[in-house]
């Protein structure tokens, strides 16, 4: 009798807890959407920001975020592919492999601010790349590599050994078996992992404030020569991203409409991350179907 009552009570508590968690998410999203979405307009999304007066947009920051994201992925994807191929296909179990895995694990659990500080020391100061897109992309690469490597490794591991044997038995090198058979077969889950990590990179700020910098100089969107100073493609210019922008205007507190701009920016960030999440699933599933379809 008593045990039954306790059981009922405990179940009630568990339902309450889960309800609170759901409620927290609804309130969070609700707050951001309700506050942020009304701010969104074409001019908000495309015009440059105003530091001291109201009515500025986030155009440059949005572009910077996307540009940095693409550069980061371009640098980190090949490295992560190579590293995960070695780990999953070549590394023999043993002390060295264990150490390497531990190192990657440590890297993945480092606070992103530490990664940013390292990026500052190495790329900005040591390599004299100053606060720039390159410095930022390199720092984000360091931030992104361990998780991306692990997710690609998981994707490779999920492909049956039968496929590897099949390639090897035909006299094909392991390398080509992996790159031409295993990797394509793993593409659906690799793409999902890639997009999810893109979401993480897109929202990252702590690794960027001392690498890509906190300023967004005006850009001339008519000039696509990467060597010109006002070209959007110039990788040597400082580039405040959307996430950094939210942090900056809130901690400085000089922008009169900081709250409104932040809410709008936060809404954009969330929507982009949501899109990434959804497309990761959709694309993963579609690619998988495409791959196995007759």
């Amino acid at each position: 009798m008593n045990a039954k009552k306790i059981d009922k009570f405990a179940t009630g508590i568990l339902y309450t807890i889960a309800g609170i968690v759901v409620l927290i998410l609804i309130m969070l999203l609700g707050f951001i959407i309700l506050r942020g979405v009304p701010q969104l307009s074409w001019s908000f999304l495309t015009s440059p920001s105003n530091a001291f007066s109201a009515g500025g947009g986030i155009g440059i920051q949005l572009f910077n975020s996307l540009y940095l994201l693409i550069l980061t992925m371009l640098i980190s994807l090949p490295i992560a592919l190579g590293a995960s191929i070695y780990l999953n296909e070549y590394a023999k179990p043993g002390m060295i492999t264990n150490t390497v895995r531990t190192m990657i694990e440590i890297l993945s659990s480092l606070p992103s601010v530490v990664v940013g500080l390292f990026g500052f020391l190495l790329f900005v100061v040591q390599f004299k790349l100053s606060f720039s897109i390159v410095s930022g992309a390199l720092a984000l690469t360091v931030f992104n590599l361990p998780l991306l490597t692990r997710s690609i490794e998981e994707a490779l591991k999920a492909i049956s050994n039968d496929q590897r044997n099949g390639g090897l038995a035909l006299g094909i090198s392991k390398w080509e078996t992996v790159t031409k058979i295993i990797l394509p077969a793993a593409v659906p889950s690799i793409v999902s992992g890639l997009i999810l990590s893109a979401g993480r990179v897109f929202g990252e700020a702590a690794a960027l404030i001392y690498t890509a910098g906190q300023s967004a100089p005006a850009l001339n969107f008519g000039n696509w020569n990467p060597f010109d100073i006002d070209s959007p493609l110039n990788p040597m210019r400082p580039a405040e991203t959307l996430a950094v922008h939210i942090w900056k205007i809130n901690s400085e507190g000089i922008m009169p409409d900081a709250a409104a701009v932040s809410a709008g920016s936060a809404a954009v960030l969330i929507i982009v991350v949501l899109l990434f999440n959804l497309s990761a699933r959709w694309l993963g599933r579609t690619l998988y179907r495409h791959l196995t379809a007759s």
């Binding site: 927290i24 998410l25 969070l28 999203l29 707050f31 951001i32 506050r35 979401g199 993480r200 897109f202 929202g203 990252e204 700020a205 702590a206 996430a243 950094v244 939210i246 942090w247 809130n250 709250a259 932040s262 809410a263 936060a266 960030l269 969330i270 991350v273 949501l274 990434f276 999440n277």
Partner: peptide
């Protein structure tokens, strides 16, 4: 979704 929300957004909501 909770994992996906960037930390600056948490900071902003915290602040406001």
């Amino acid at each position: 979704l909770l994992v996906g929300i960037p930390s600056v957004v948490y900071g902003f909501v915290g602040l406001t």
